[in-house]
Design a binder for these strands. Structure first.
Lengths: 353, 353
DNA sequence: GTGAAAGCGCTAACAG
DNA sequence: CTGTTAGCGCTTTCAC
């Protein structure tokens, strides 16, 4: 601020009331006479007064700011997450302090900064970030919600999709499609999300007696994924079905398959992703993918956050939101309906009409 | 914060020094004896002390927070902007309060919120947002930097690419490629960015006697762009060269051209975009595009912001960062070198050898 | 319903 | 170099 802003004191003077009256006018539950309130508002408008949120924070011990940590945004999913999250928080009167772009740098100084701003809560949406961060938060009494990842740590909340089930459903679907040689392209090796998707995929295949699959490290990175795909397709016995742990990677694999190896998708190789980002539905890709239920996930995250803030306590709830397989053209279709091991229907051929 | 945080007072008591000594320890330029500093740091570590940025703001009248307004993030460019911006600000000790996701809602309440948090500056990266917002800021003495858009308003800074020149270069390139029937797909009609790109394009074509071109309203929206593209290609005399005001729209046009009209790119129609987002370089698209010089633009924006904050004054500098044509496969190549009207080389065939 | 007064956690003079 | 002191702008008792 270049010039000192208008204070409640000045407004009070102009309105001919006490400074407390001004404060009360801007405090939702406070008792102010309608007449007083009007005088205050008139004076405030005239002077261009705005309550100072910082000063309020100092005394209420609530900043109404949520720290959001997203190491990098190139997962095509995150812009969407950010938008929905911002909307949800704003609706409840909260602001968003964003920490991102520290791919290379260390995250510790970042964390220090966050804490100095006395955020009311922290949302961690980086699959790769060390969980020390969340420990330090709970130690400081700041509620944490992990988004699209989880942890074994006892005291923190998380919201994820049903990664394990999703991976398994994809395995069932691909197996039913007649494939026999599978590959998995892994995301960040240390992330629970990647671990669960892979574990589900392997479990689904094992049910059909397949325990050996190809493996590539995509690392959520375009270049790494391309390298992994090249190795895969150049092998003597290349896979005829590839499941990539994220759409981002799946699309990179598809590009390599088509443009560097001249493979037809899905005739020569089926490719399936996870997340169902916008581009998955573009005609050029028509990527079969497992839909990450973004809206309900964000809702759940905001809810968990509010619950903790309002109760002034750090909870430990883990919410899993179910997604569903979005079948498109990048994977061969099975001849008939596909069921999960518990009997639920994963996919069925469209009825003829 | 659930529990009241540790204060400088408590640290001082434990360290056996005055509270000021604690403050000084955390103030970069302050004079503290090494021994005192150490005692303080030891006590702080023991208690888990962190300075309260809010309290500091109250007295320094500097929040070290920059408000960033981005109405929506689906322009594939913005995640990148956000990352780079966050990194640049962080480097200088600033945090980022992000306002986004209010596509449908009104932006006024959002603005009120921003101002209550006493942001040191505001970065506007929404091409579509009304400029009243920036007026109100300057009125309040808060420096504004517009990113990737500009305005006629006297008191505010802006950083853009050379949109007009970019549009013109694309016109030259396409004309030299032998095209004769052109179309422009417009972004947000009210944005300076769109206006300039279109004006440059038209100017470039007019130089060659072409003043009539097709026009579609893509509105930076996938669905709108598709509709516009359908109308274009379904016409009796469809264009053989399409320039879309953003890559996002260019890709949408390409999808429609190929998959709904069976057109070959660039044999049947050349398509050129603007921004050079990551996907432009994917083999599936190989989109010729004008590179938005993102890194220098973000640097300039941060610089302009800091300059204003440090001088405690609202400046009015408009920075234009030059980009360059990234020639790929989505537009027919000219037979020989292409020059802009001032003689600068836009493109030349690769040398044989 | 209202004003006076205390104080949130910190920085910035000011003497020493 | 250090401690003392006076606020920053606000919310929140507490009497009235």
């Amino acid at each position: 601020m270049t010039q000192r802003a208008v204070t409640a004191e000045e407004v009070a003077r102009l309105a001919g009331v006490s400074q407390s009256a001004v404060s009360r006018t801007y405090t939702p539950g406070a008792s102010v006479a309608a007449k007083t309130r009007e005088k205050v508002l008139a004076a405030a408008r005239q002077l261009g007064y705005r309550p100072n949120a910082m000063a309020r924070t100092l005394i209420t011990n609530r900043s109404r700011i949520i720290g959001v940590v997203m190491a990098y945004l190139d997962n095509m999913l995150y812009p969407d997450v950010l938008e929905k999250l911002a909307a949800g928080l704003q609706e409840r009167g909260y602001q968003m302090l964003l920490f991102t772009g520290f791919k290379d740098r260390h995250s510790d100084p970042v964390f220090e900064q966050i804490m100095q701003y006395r955020v009311d809560g922290l949302l961690l949406a980086s699959t790769t970030l060390s969980s020390d961060l969340s420990d330090e938060c709970t130690a400081a009494g700041v509620p944490v919600v992990m988004f699209n990842r989880t942890t074994e740590h006892p005291l923190c909340c998380s919201v994820t999709s049903d990664n394990h089930s999703g991976g398994r459903q994809i395995a069932e679907f691909l197996f039913a499609g007649g494939h026999r040689r599978f590959a998995y392209i892994a995301g960040a090796a240390i992330s629970s999300t990647n671990r669960d998707r892979e574990a589900g995929f392997r479990q689904g295949l094992r049910r059909h007696g397949i325990s050996e699959i190809d493996y590539g490290e995509g690392n959520l990175d375009t270049a790494d994924t391309r390298t992994a795909a090249r190795t895969l397709f150049a092998s003597e016995d290349p896979p005829d079905a590839v499941f990539a742990g994220s759409d981002h990677m799946a699309l990179a694999v598809m590009e390599i398959a088509r443009h560097e190896f001249g493979l037809r998708v899905p005739d020569d190789v089926s490719i399936v992703g996870y997340d169902d980002v916008g581009a998955a539905d573009w005609p050029s890709f028509s990527l079969t993918s497992y839909t990450l239920p973004l809206a309900p996930m964000v809702d759940a995250a905001v809810e968990l956050m509010m619950e903790q803030i309002e109760s002034s306590s750090v909870l430990s709830h883990h919410r899993v939101v179910p997604g569903r397989l979005a079948v498109r053209g990048s994977a061969r279709l099975p001849g008939g309906p596909v069921h999960d091991r518990d009997g639920t229907l994963i996919w069925a051929p469209a009825r003829k009409g």
